[in-house]
Design a binder for these strands. Structure first.
Lengths: 235, 235
DNA sequence: TTTAAAAACTGACAATAATCACTTTTCATA
DNA sequence: TATGAAAAGTGATTATTGTCAGTTTTTAAA
């Protein structure tokens, strides 16, 4: 569904994004070129293997990015929220999308065509710097995730993933912090890199140990401190 | 050991690097600011957690980059050879080094101080593009590695690592391709993300199955086709 | 409200990989 | 070339995780 545009100049999510410090003029250019589209859970923004024609900027909602392994399994690479850009690394390396992005919480997403984006990148050195800086930070994060994936047990990794989720999507309540995003057991499994059944079993162990609680579809993190310990060391 | 400088202008490795298309003037600036240092196997270029003061460019030899997991284990992140840059993502994200880089094959490495590097980056938009493009490609590679790490068995991953090594360091011989780099079983284990004993056992299986052969310290890849199959599917 | 499908969950079992406690081989150097 | 240390290799055992074959619960739509 194509929405009436909301100008980038007045967009609140923008403040959180790489566009935070663009000039009025640059924002107008992008606003003029972009589309804002409302998406329902389950809709897909782009598919692995197709060619990027621009970049996506999340106004609201949550988008998951998934990569297919050559043996058919799937890896959840990233969860994008308000202010996050999607698909720009493929655009910038002039490659096809390395992964598929799908809405998992109803979202409004702006699409900015390649030319408008590249134009700002070309003309605004500060913006280019910010982009570079952000990508370099991503590399650091990926190195850490790779290290964890290879050197830690599933139990440690799940604990770590829960802590990351609570950092990004956590909302403090009376008892513990609620992860304000619904992920199926299968999706958590694909994020951690394990079988769905293993996630189910570990979550109920964590629950038994009072590290987490379940509130309907949501996970409440009760004991971050102990969870951090579980994430770091074989107990 | 500090060496007499070899000017970037006449450096053969440069053609393989991100510096390939710099102007004469830019190269002179960098040449003037840099140091070339010869390193023996085992010496370390920089340590995880320290602040980058510039970037490293490999003239010859091989450098491994290793990251410590929070549980004390180690992950081999990258093997850099002639023409490869090291430490620039940490520099560009204004962060401490996320990993440690150590020589594993006697090397000559140039150190380019931050200011000289940033100066070229600031003034030469094309160079900045090339850097961005390269980092974005790295992101794609890391996504693939993460997916493999999480979704594949050790056997598949070892097969995949051997294929990657032969692509990068392979030299064709009469029978198969020789991986022209000496890695200990422990280092291969840290690259694949498993125990040393597991690597030893799998390598001798691969040898038994005539996928590889051992020639002293070197590994010969005999059957890339079957190895690719092993890398992709549970047999 | 019924009903079919999807998701969550459980238990048994098998497979994979880690760990430990060695032996053997290789290598550097005294 | 002797020798001690490091690396490679082996075997037995255990722990972890995956797979399969279900049941139960939840959800969405008729």
């Amino acid at each position: 569904m194509r929405d009436p545009k909301e100008a980038c100049e007045i967009c609140l999510s923008r403040k959180l994004s790489l566009f935070a410090n663009l000039t009025e003029e640059e924002l107008k250019k992008i606003s003029a070129a972009k589309n804002m589209i409302s998406h329902k859970k389950g809709q897909t923004l782009f598919y692995e293997g197709t060619k990027p024609l621009g970049i996506f900027c999340v106004r609201s909602g949550v988008v998951k990015t998934v990569k297919a392994a050559s043996n058919g399994k799937e890896q959840l690479i990233h969860l994008a929220k308000e202010g996050d850009f999607l698909g720009y690394t493929s655009l910038l390396s002039d490659d096809v999308y390395s992964s598929t992005s799908t809405i998992i919480k109803d979202a409004r997403v702006c699409f900015i065509p390649k030319e408008a984006f590249m134009d700002v990148l070309r003309k605004d050195v500060n913006f280019h710097y910010k982009v570079t800086e952000s990508i370099c930070r991503d590399i650091g994060n990926m190195e850490e995730r790779l290290t964890d994936a290879n050197q830690k047990s599933i139990r440690e990794r799940l604990a770590y993933v829960l802590l990351k989720l609570v950092n990004t999507f956590g909302v403090k309540g009376e008892k513990g912090e609620k992860i304000e995003i619904v992920l199926s057991r299968e999706e958590i499994a694909s994020l951690v890199g394990t079988a769905t059944e293993t996630i189910i079993r570990l979550l109920s162990e964590f629950k038994k140990d009072k590290l987490i609680a379940l509130q309907g579809k949501y996970i409440l993190v009760l004991d971050k401190k102990t969870l951090s310990k579980v994430a770091d060391f074989y107990q």
